[in-house]
Amino acid sequence: MSHPDDLAYSREHEWVRVEDGRATIGITSFAANELGDIVFVELPEVGATLTQFGTFGVVESVKAVSDLYAPVSGEVIEVNEALRDAPELMNSDPFGEGWIAKVELGDRSELDALLDAAGYAAETA
């Protein structure tokens, strides 16, 4: 299972991509596989404030349900509306079209608490 090198990862299986002070958040392919066919995701509201490692949503598959944990803190500026009709994007393209939310990154130092691709790969090996 390959994990893109340009992302940071949390032990709760979320990834984050930082571009221009904005962080895009999603779940990893490992998490998507463990859950199986994802059928529903409860997205955060735009404007909501996420706290690092706090819950911000729920993802449901046919056989399981799991909380979503924010890998970084910040205000939600956009959510992936496409997931409302096609939650399966989280299975088919977890690091791309299956992204969940974008936040205005508050504190860059929070990224230090996350893993790089190699560290995450070791964690899920």
């Binding site: 059928v39 399981a64 349900v65």
Partner: peptide, 13 residues
């Protein structure tokens, strides 16, 4: 269907 709402999956939630 929509069983993830139910006790056997969601348990205390």
């Amino acid at each position: 269907t929509l069983q993830a709402r139910e006790q056997h999956i969601r348990r205390e939630k």
